[in-house]
Write a protein that binds this DNA or RNA. Structure first.
Lengths: 311, 311
DNA sequence: TATAGGCACAACCGTTGGTTGTGGCCAGGC
DNA sequence: GCCTGGCCACAACCAACGGTTGTGCCTATA
């Protein structure tokens, strides 16, 4: 199936005759006839009934028409997604299941007319470079890297402090706890195989470890979220941290427990980064939306590294 | 933009290299290279960065990828819509704003996995012929034509009695009424330019006219719903009938009034028609859904022609 | 019955898109 | 540091697709 052919089909359906569609498309009537015939041959059904004064859609043609229009719209959107200038707002998030994705979904609900492209870049280095080059418009990053302040031309605002919860299997010693303190976690094995050395994730958990004397293991290959959850569910001595808003998809019978952490509650400080001079109109809308919807969080009783972007 | 090229792009992005994508698509590596180069030339952006051991997506490529996948899905759905056997369930409705569309939206919400194609055929003759030929699976029709019973192989069930309301402009004599009786409408001009002679609509209103002595005008060209509403809103002496569930889109300042009709309330008897031997699995689901959601309506105080499909 | 409008078929031809052959580039191993 | 293997790009060639012109047929309409 060829998009030009589909375009021809839609034009012919709208015009009600091949001649007029041909004029619109600046080709001959014979070309339209051949294209439609080829499309009908490919699909194996007749799309038009040819009459003495034109061509009208068969029932198959009527059923096909909205799909054809949708196909053209999809093509238009695909092209627009990389068109320089006036392309959709490009925002980088950590993962598709993070709280950041939730924020973006909320933004999309509030502004369904604003075209969005959500990507997942590797780390904050890549993200900052992409922002500076104009390849992306904004990035949700947890934190700035310690000792390495953001460049002058990158602005940022902290938009969400997401409490971390302990995720355990049903046989874990703390599985029945309604909440745990950071002190109680001393000696327990916390496993975070998704942490890539050198990223801001590592810096965050390094600080957490040194300040509260926890044991966090980042060893072992990361086989993905599913494998992590499987292991957590089956291993009584193992637990992991997970953002309160992180959406999980796991088999219901795993019996995983989410346990709030207190005294203090470690929070993951999601910030929005963007370029000072970025003129994308939707960027201002996004910033305003985030400012309006994430205001008024209480920082009392929470912990975050000192080097993060201040509130 | 060509769909084969987009398919190639997705394959290359998934494989991480052109060579493997070429093998999957059963073409040479050079062909893949040329296709990607052509796509990049068309879009005006680089989609891959070529490395010594493959090709990885640029940020533009990452933004484009989900759109490309959606494009292919749309193409797949478009093809499936006319594939004989196992195509989406095809249902014919009166108009996109009728109560029937509301029923289908409800069905889609209840069964989002069932693929649907909604069409609007001309009249019940066409619909019955389409059902018998297998071109469509079901049709929402108000009624059977009087004196012309449905063929043996067409089954039907009445799914919704939709009360008719009077629609008037703000200056109409009845505009302030909280409800009107059919008797009160004698002498008032009811205008229904959408009624095509020979269709079951006409038969319905003919019966309504003869039984209650109304004056219904079907004269004049039908310029569409917008023009009808404009005229109704501006003409004090004119009113029209409209289904209670019909969704209107009109400028808010028109001041149109919807007035319930009583003693009796004329109801438009929407029925579902289908072929006795239609094996489409979703058809049974649709019938079950309609039976479950539209049961228990009260027929007391309502009027419908005697020749309609009985409840 | 003549006419006009519209679609399909045939012949022709240029361009597109595939293949084979080859060269360049980069990473890893000796 | 050089060789080698893996991968992509460029060039030449060729078939096939898709466009055009020319023409015939069909069917509403006068």
């Amino acid at each position: 199936m060829d998009l030009d052919t589909v375009r021809t089909f839609v034009a012919a359906a709208d015009a009600g005759q091949f001649q007029e569609a041909a004029a619109e498309l600046a080709v001959t009537q014979q070309a339209v006839s051949k294209r439609i015939a080829a499309l009908e041959r490919n699909l194996g059904v007749r799309l038009f009934t040819r009459t003495a004064r034109g061509a009208e859609l068969t029932i198959d043609g009527q059923a096909f028409l909205p799909h054809a229009r949708e196909l053209l719209r999809a093509a238009e959107r695909a092209g627009a997604s990389v068109r320089p200038g006036r392309r959709p707002l490009r925002v980088d998030v950590l993962t598709s299941r993070s709280a950041q994705s939730g924020l973006m979904r909320g933004f999309h609900r509030a502004h369904p007319d604003i075209e969005l492209d959500v990507l997942m870049l590797f780390d904050i280095e890549t993200a900052v470079a992409a922002i500076r080059s104009g390849a992306i418009d904004a990035s949700f990053r947890a934190v700035a890297a310690p000792g390495r302040p953001l460049p002058e031309d990158i602005e940022s605002v902290r938009v969400l402090d997401e409490p971390l919860q302990l995720l355990t299997g049903p046989a874990h010693a703390l599985a029945a706890a309604r909440s745990v303190t950071l002190a109680q976690l001393t000696g327990h094995r916390i496993w975070m195989p998704g942490i890539v050395p050198g990223t801001e994730w590592t810096a965050y958990y390094d600080d957490l470890v040194t300040e509260f004397g926890l044991t966090i293991e980042a060893t072992g290959p990361n086989f993905g979220s599913d494998a992590l959850l499987d292991t957590i569910a089956d291993t009584p001595a193992l637990a992991t941290f997970m953002g309160e808003h992180t959406r999980l998809i796991w088999p219901a019978d795993h019996g995983l427990r989410r346990i709030p952490v207190t005294d203090p509650t470690p929070v993951y400080p999601h910030s929005l980064l963007w370029h000072r001079d970025n003129p994308h109109p939707a960027l201002a809308t996004l910033r305003a939306h985030l400012a309006a919807t994430t205001a008024g969080h209480d920082a009392a009783g929470t912990w975050a590294p000192r080097w993060v972007i201040p509130r």
